[in-house]
Design a protein around this nucleic acid. Structure first.
Lengths: 210, 210, 210, 210
DNA sequence: CATGAATGAGGCTTCATTCAT
DNA sequence: TATGAATGAAGCCTCATTCAT
């Protein structure tokens, strides 16, 4: 006879989140496929059977976690758009936040892993890819805005966006590859991709390449 | 039928290579963990039991393949060093070759996957990471050479090398992430990371960051 | 609030019965093994944990239910013996009542299922089988009575009883097998098994076969 | 390098059948749900993993077995139709054969169990039920033939067929219920259901009841 | 008594690896 | 060597049962 259904629901959410967090950590550390449900359960401090009271399957857990990470990242993109300053400054802010949000950056690594397994169904994978795409569109739009206002170099905006986001996303992999934690100074380097040349020569393709 | 031990050895090598190639293709397509030995065997055109006459285990096969890919890449780096022209031009040549060598670029993706499984032993992983490191050293050296000769911007050479190689390695992941095949035009964009600014302002840290 | 132990006990019995009834329904519908304790709890309108305040285990619940069903059936047999008329008419009455008592007829199906699981212990199964036997003895006795008085055909009474009860019990399975609900007219057909032939030829073995 | 693919295929069929037979025996003995795949494997004399080289799942195994049993029974029905003599004599032949074919009779029991689990999918169950129906149609047809020729009593043919087949099918359950093996003499008793009355009185409904 | 979260034994299934032929 | 049947360790998931509240 639960006296406080509201608190119960809160407890439940709490524990769900604890599981997701534990899963993210272990997934990042040992890899998605190499991680057993019981590993996650142990890390979250409950029995393996109990995990299934919160997530119906390993797939569901992974899916939830990825979507959650993508949510965080999407939120970052939204807030970026409301930042003051030039498009270039907005993107600078984005990289800095991305580096700070361990959640957002580890998600990138886990998503990559998810592509390389059959843990997720094709539909789930497609859904994730669609979000990745949508997020890139935001970057493209900001870049084009910057190109109009002159804060960003003239270059095919899709290609520029792809190289740019690829570069900063990949900082999440530096530690894994043995390159150590990226330092804040990297921001300036990556922004160099975007900075306009003092003169036009050397600028690349303006239309969509290919 | 006269025995020909040399030809026999050659035959054996031939088939070993066929297996490695099949494995690389399937690993890239479906993921390392999701790929069964029997998938590889089927793709290579032999029975799954027979694979074990050529490789003692899935680990050995993966390990061999990764080392082979790293060999190819190391060879690329050597040839780069002997290219004529400035350091910048050498690195331009490198990117172009990397894009052309499907072997080298898919290896990158498979190595990443290998990190996310327990298929490989810790020692094997360490060995691979060591090679990755050594290869980065080559890039660092070239970059420093370019910085001395003025073809490459002043920036902490390790950081610059890391961002640079990260950027072009990651083009191997574009198709997987749904970004399509990178076009040759990307080369120019990535080189922009390296190009010196016309004036000094805007250059980043010169010492090793951190 | 004055304690009323009697009413309390009554309440308890009430709820126990509700659980048994729910269990019988779900067991019949979905099968004994495929039915989860939580299914029963839900159907009875209480939490699954609470069921264990009334029955110590799934086995106990099933056992209780079967015995109860057999009780109902035994009661039917008793009342049959007190019916007026010939032995044949008594058995006619029995079939009709059996068809009307959903409880008695579904029990038959559940007992069969119970034989096909390890939910019940061997002892429990033996106990049930013993009751089945005892009940058949009642039929045998009635049949023999009918044979003496001439209302029932001469035939080995055990075999006759077995075929007879088998036939009417099995009407409980018609719906499950896709044969629809048996109609009242079946009674006449089944009684045909018992009816004496107008002449003696065609009568079967009189001693116990075998 | 298998020298004799034909013999291999034969071996394979052989073993498949051995598994099916083992499964039938254990299913009958211990019940479908209570039987573990490893029990079947042990009974068939191979490792549990190996069973999956022949049947993809417990469901597939059960389904195959049931269909096989139904095939045997359908074959029986076909041969019955070609028997010489009256319809009544054909049905007599059928019962006798049914009693002899342990395969056909145990299948009945297993099908019943299959209805009471979720081991089989709904589609599989529907398919099985459809065959059950089709087989009843054969009995109905024979009965109607017998009614035209006068060897079988006038009664609603569907109801008569249902009671009749129910009665002889259920002999498969006698041992399970503790009634012992049915003796050949039962045949005569069951046929009594079908025999025409010397006079018309006592005949039941002629149209479809209900 | 009531609730539902928690536990963990146990079954199904997969797949790397071995082995008889 | 080549084949593919055979093995069995190991992971995922279910669900009867317990227990804290």
């Amino acid at each position: 006879m639960p006296r406080n259904p509201e608190r119960d629901r809160w407890h439940r959410e709490e524990k769900r989140q604890r599981i997701v967090d534990a899963a993210r950590e272990i997934f990042t550390l040992r890899g998605v496929t190499a991680t057993k449900m019981s590993d996650i359960a142990a890390a979250a401090g409950l029995s393996h059977g109990n995990v299934y009271n919160y997530f119906g399957s390993k797939e569901e857990l992974l899916h939830t976690m990825v979507l959650q990470g993508q949510d965080v990242y999407s939120g970052l993109l939204s807030r970026m758009q409301n930042q003051p300053g030039s498009a270039l400054e907005k993107l600078e802010w984005l990289i800095e936040q991305f580096l700070l949000s361990s959640n957002a950056s580890t998600t990138y690594w886990i998503v990559l892993q998810a592509q390389a397994t059959d843990v997720l169904s094709t539909e789930a994978r497609n859904e994730i890819t669609a979000i990745v795409h949508a997020n890139r569109e935001v970057i493209i739009a900001i870049i084009e805005e910057g190109q109009r206002e002159g804060s960003i170099a003239q270059w095919d905006s899709t290609e520029l966006a792809t190289v740019f986001l690829t570069a900063y996303h990949n900082m999440a992999l530096w530690p894994i590859r043995g390159f150590g934690q990226p330092q804040p100074s990297v921001t300036g380097l990556i922004l160099k991709l975007l900075r306009p040349y003092p003169n036009q020569e050397g600028n690349g393709p303006l239309g969509r390449p290919g």
